[in-house]
């Protein structure tokens, strides 16, 4: 169908990188190396099905069930796989627990390794040079940028993810959350709290 706008007689030209990706796709499809339908499934999975709610589910259960937490700290990969959270970038996951004494924080100084099955695709800041360089060098300053101030005597431990090992932070369970069920607890667990650049949300009406 001809278009009635003389300024756009032809289809909108995608940006250069989009054309290059299309070129790769065409070549690999013609060689029979990829199945274009599988690409759509992967995109749908990461856009709609995998995200920080998975990680929040794991954390909420760890808060509620001491035996589960023990098992999680021992072998996170096995435990979260049983919950259905496994796949790319989740081959070897390690859970680290925040306490009054230790605050854990995760970075990938190499590129952007991240526990996809639990947290989805990392946010832009996680992939930025600024975060990747500063998280190790000055973690407290980075935490301050995120609005997190820790007591002086809380140690900060920074974990550098690799293509082999990825970390999930179990944030401290907020005060006043006793008796809340797993679903309610999940709502307190933010993505950033599981990277260690945030804390779990405070319970409404309880003193921080």
């Amino acid at each position: 169908m001809p278009h009635d706008d003389p300024d756009h007689p032809h289809s909108l030209l995608p940006p250069d990188p989009a054309l290059r990706v299309k070129a790769l796709e065409t070549i690999l499809t013609r060689k029979g190396l990829i199945d274009p339908a599988a690409l759509d499934v992967i995109i749908d999975t990461y856009e709609n099905k995998i995200g920080p709610r998975n990680g929040a589910h794991v954390v909420a259960r760890a808060w509620s069930d001491p035996a589960f937490k023990t098992a999680l700290l021992e072998d996170a990969t096995a435990v979260v796989s049983e919950m259905g959270y496994y796949g790319r970038q989740g081959e070897h996951m390690v859970a680290v627990e925040n306490t009054a004494d230790v605050h854990n924080m995760v970075v990938c100084t190499l590129c952007s390794c991240y526990p996809w099955p639990l947290l989805g695709i990392p946010p832009g800041w996680y992939k930025s040079d600024a975060y990747r360089a500063r998280a190790v060098r000055e973690p407290r300053a980075v935490l301050a940028d995120f609005g997190v101030t820790l007591p002086e005597d809380t140690a900060v431990r920074v974990w550098d993810s690799t293509a082999e090992v990825r970390y999930l932070v179990i944030p401290e369970r907020p005060a006043g959350s006793d008796g809340m069920d797993e679903a309610a607890l999940m709502d307190l667990v933010t993505r950033d709290s599981m990277i260690g650049t945030g804390l779990a949300l405070p319970v409404e009406g309880s003193a921080p």
């Binding site: 990706v21 990461y46 650049t197 945030g198």
Partner: peptide
């Protein structure tokens, strides 16, 4: 809070190149 739902991919080609790489890896290349 910083947990507001950011789009996972801000450009369609970001998603495409990501999926292409994951797919090739899953296919064992």
């Amino acid at each position: 809070m910083t947990d507001a739902p950011d789009p996972v991919f801000t450009e369609p080609w970001h998603a495409q190149v990501f999926a292409l790489t994951v797919h090739l890896n899953e296919a064992g290349h």
